[in-house]
Amino acid sequence: MTTRAAERRAIHGSGRNYWRRLGNEVRRDKWLYVLLLPGLIYFIVFKYLPMFGIVIAFENYVPFSGVIGSEWVGFKWFNSFFRFPAWLTYLKNTLILSLMNIVFFFPAPIILALLLNEMRRQRYKKLLQTMLYVPHFISIVIVVSITFVMFGPSGIVYKATQNVLGHSINYMGSPDTFRWMIIGQTIWKETGWGTIIFLAALTNVDTQLYEAAMVDGAGRLRRLWHITLPAIRSTIVLMLILRMGSVLDTGYDHLILMANPLNRSASQTLDVFVYQQGIQQGQFSYASAIGLMKSIVSVTLVLTSNKIAHLLGEQGLY
């Protein structure tokens, strides 16, 4: 930290000196800054100004009274959440789903990208890539419907397992299978799309390195291990750090679509809680408070994992 601060001071100077330098720079490159302006205005108007709405998390917000007129209740909603005995269940469900997502879904696009990278026929590879992107554009409602048709009690997969195992597995109606179904659907839908960023990173690998390795007698696996993977390591770390920021995000639409009375216990996550309170119950303040709490945790996780990445000698986010 101290070294980085010193570094910054060396570059920008400190205090008044810093502002004077900045002023000079702006004057020098004024047209560049003018170019920056639309983006800056966009962020202020659409991202920063709406953030004042966060205050409703500390109010008993009634739309008719408005943000300013509503009663101020401080940390009431936060207390209310932690007084709810089941809040740990909601957190647990969220974390389990998220962890499974990181362990099983996160590596999937990397593996697929590496496989694609090994393909010789470029035209075939391009065709395959395009086909792999398609599921991303299919609405989750459709994905759930397809799953239901296949895995539901009259579906082909259900019947097949019944014939092979001798007993049926209730894919769609048990809390044990619920999470696997969610992860499976996510992998099916998003893996192809997720390869884009890794494939882009792979194009930056210097082909001379491969040639040199080949001359030295390195096989495919050796080349993969010593050249390809190190080349995209920083991208993987970057994606992982970003992923940490959404550890508490499970989404709610997917889970609500898949939930029924038999498996609901596994579907109750923080995002579902926010939906139940905010949209179903109309408790906007309560929902905002939980959302705010999630965001604070997310920011903390991103900063922490970025720090760890620095300590391990990676470039990280910034």
Binding site: F84, A86, P261, L262, S265, Q277, Q281, Q283, Y286
Partner: peptide, 17 residues
């Protein structure tokens, strides 16, 4: 008001099961 949306499914789901 605060937890109705979370509590009522407990009874209903248990009955179904």
């Amino acid at each position: 008001v605060d937890y109705g949306a979370q509590l009522s499914p407990i009874i209903a789901d248990a009955a179904v099961q």
